[in-house]
Nucleic acid binder design. Structure first.
Lengths: 257, 257
DNA sequence: CTGTCCCCATGACGACGGTCATACCGTCGA
DNA sequence: TCGACGGTATGACCGTCGTCATGGGGACAG
């Protein structure tokens, strides 16, 4: 799989279900179980009785791929946490393009930025996969914040981490070319999710060309060009359920160390 | 001043003292007065006795233009607050350019991102003017955090605000051209510091061409081209101690609404 | 007064990457 | 089986902006 040249016909394409822009409102689901909260990092360290309160106040909702969790500019009525699935946080750019700020997964909080101050969401959120989220009404969450220093600490840590990541991306966008940005993106994904395979690393994180383009702040055409060239050069290949970093060395090189 | 065309000879240039890269260590100053803290937003709402503790633990330092307050990658030993002056927060880009993430002024905290988790500073800080900072040792600050919910709230608010601003800049950098970014920069400065003058707005916030370029993520040449063209077109002029937005309409236009 | 230094200004040139246009292929529904 | 659709692929073109090179002008030291 890694050794010989890949024929065009062999190149498996990502199979990503079409995005149905239809659904805004998510399906409601049964009331959450307090034990479920233990699996969410943010709530793990709060007192058990507080978890019960959160569970009682919270609601689970199910989103299909493409469903909107919230839209930029809306007031944050809920504090949202991903129980299962992936959600992209993105801003719409003048000109029609989107810029994906971050992709959150299981256990990550959504809209932590907005909920505390009650500011409108600074970006939109849309499900990438079939996703289940825990919605806790803002007031209930704020009440819990008052009493749980552990929760405040978690929130503060999360914010600082995101802030650091954003400054990093800002400097990449300003300083590095498109190809370098792609290289860094995949190296980061590999570090986070990659598992060894055939001498390379498999990243079980499917993304369409459009999504890749939106993550690096470029156009789909430029993205496709680079990805298809890398495929031919044996640097990185696309599979139906993720990517394979065949030659990490070259990527490190292109990333500019 | 606004009506007639500006001759090249008339265009006053910014007088910005040369940056001496020499000084890293700042001059030490007398122990701070607790009353001084009342003027710093972050400490205003903490209990008076806590302000006394902070004042006792803290030290004032003086920085000249170009002096380094801290460098990217260093561990945050102190929590720093600007008492007087301006400090730029910037990242060095591969290729030698700098990207200014933010310019902080009197009352703003520095390194709030790093101090809580103890992570190394994600960016460097350098004084733009003669500046006085209050340094509170990290441990003392953390102790105070434990006991002062007001301080925690202030920190959280500050971080969320910065996060929102950064996402905004990220999308600008990805979506808008250089000229639009300059227009937005000046409109923001005008909104924050501008005072009406001769039908336009004067922004008493001197910045060199290089600093402007670093704030918008471009090169000094491109910056100079735009600024000198705007000067000729009567859109915006440079003065020794700031800028004059002569025609805000055009800037709004260029900013893309 | 004169040399030096730093900041500002302007022109020429080229490349990176965005835009437009076209085509291929697999999936799905009729 | 056929057609429509969405995602992927590739070529041609060109504008924006980064790079290099050169020159002017004010401030300051000797």
């Amino acid at each position: 799989m890694t050794g010989h040249a890949v024929q065009p016909a062999e190149r498996a394409l990502i199979r990503i279900s079409p995005v149905h822009q239809c659904g805004y409102h998510a399906r409601h689901m049964p009331v959450p179980d307090p034990d479920l909260l233990v699996r969410l990092p943010l709530f793990r360290r709060v007192r058990p009785e507080d978890r019960v309160r959160v569970a009682a106040a919270g609601r689970l909702r199910r989103y299909e791929r493409g469903d909107v969790v919230f839209e930029e500019g809306e007031p944050p009525d809920d504090f949202v946490t991903i129980v299962e699935g992936r959600v992209k946080i993105f801003k719409r750019l003048p000109g029609g393009r989107d810029l994906i700020l971050q992709i959150f997964g299981t256990g990550d909080p959504l809209g932590a930025v907005a909920v505390y101050e009650g500011r409108p969401y600074p970006a939109s959120a849309q499900a990438l996969d079939p996703t289940v989220c825990l919605h806790v009404p803002r007031q209930a969450f704020l009440g819990l914040l008052e009493e749980s220093p552990a929760l405040v600490r978690g929130l503060l840590s999360g914010l600082t981490l995101r802030l650091i990541e954003l400054t990093e991306r800002l400097s990449e966008l300003a300083g590095a070319g498109v190809e370098a940005r792609f290289a860094r993106l995949f190296l980061k994904l590999s570090e986070q999710f990659g598992i060894p395979r055939d001498g390379g690393r498999f990243v079980p994180f499917p993304l369409s060309r459009q999504e890749l383009a939106d993550m690096t702040g470029t156009t789909i055409e430029t993205c496709i060009r680079i990805m298809s060239r890398w495929g031919k050069e044996g640097v990185l290949t696309t599979e139906r359920d993720g990517f394979v970093l065949v030659n990490g060395q070259v990527l490190e090189q292109l990333a500019g160390r």
